[in-house]
Nucleic acid binder design. Structure first.
Lengths: 116, 116
DNA sequence: TGCTCATATTGATGACAGTCAATATCGAGG
DNA sequence: CCTCGATATTGACTGTCATCAATATGAGCA
């Protein structure tokens, strides 16, 4: 690859950086992609938004099922993914389950983009 | 849903916020999820990382194919997705194609998380 | 013109994700 | 204990995604 000189640039190795020492490794990339996988669904973004907007800081599942146009098992599934991604925290009190934002988890995700 | 009193909370409507006026609508959510869909793949994160780390600010495709362990068509495909998500910019000079970060695109994505 | 090289597009394939219906679990109350 | 109501789990289905091999495009050059 790339043995001939290029039209518009110097022919030295400046452009041929193999994988810059500062670039992301394969494992780190896979790790970091997990958070964005969790954020890559509109319904999950709405769930996060609702939980964040809730004044009490804790939102019951029954209040998350209605606004989204989804069945209860599906909402439960999305919530599980958000918990596993470290974005939400689940606390069960009696029959009800309350979800709350993990403090600074969203900021951490934003931070990933800052120092890619 | 939710007609009986709850164990630990007041019975008034404070918790029953149907979809808080501040919560994300369906269309906005779908829109915002697009960026994260683009970020939700480890190889695309690595591509962004390499382009960002490149001193020249412009990276040729031939330098992006090697570090990732992927075929050239696959890399081209990922680059297209990143361009369509508004994260990368493509400039073709002669036979070569150079990709560069769209200024502040990553910050904008991070901003979405800030004011979910 | 015709060849070569860099990149993009197409088509096919296997893996994964979102959704639902049905069912399981588990606490609360009678 | 037995039922009810809230949430979680399972299984199946469907659509989307990542990847590759093959091919197309299109610029540079002899």
């Amino acid at each position: 690859m790339n043995l001939a000189p290029r039209p518009d640039q110097a022919t030295d190795d400046a452009c041929r950086t193999p994988a810059g020492p500062t670039a992301l490794g394969a494992e780190e990339a896979q790790q970091k992609a997990l958070v964005f996988k969790a954020l890559a669904d509109p319904n999950r973004l709405r769930l996060l938004s609702i939980v964040k907007a809730d004044a009490s800081g804790e939102t019951c599942v029954c209040d998350l099922t209605a606004p989204l146009d989804l069945g209860q098992p599906t909402v439960s599934h999305h919530l599980k993914i958000l918990v596993e991604a470290g974005l939400l925290r689940r606390e069960k009190r009696g029959t009800w389950a309350y979800y709350s934002l993990v403090p600074s988890a969203l900021d951490d995700a934003a931070g990933i983009l800052g120092d890619l």
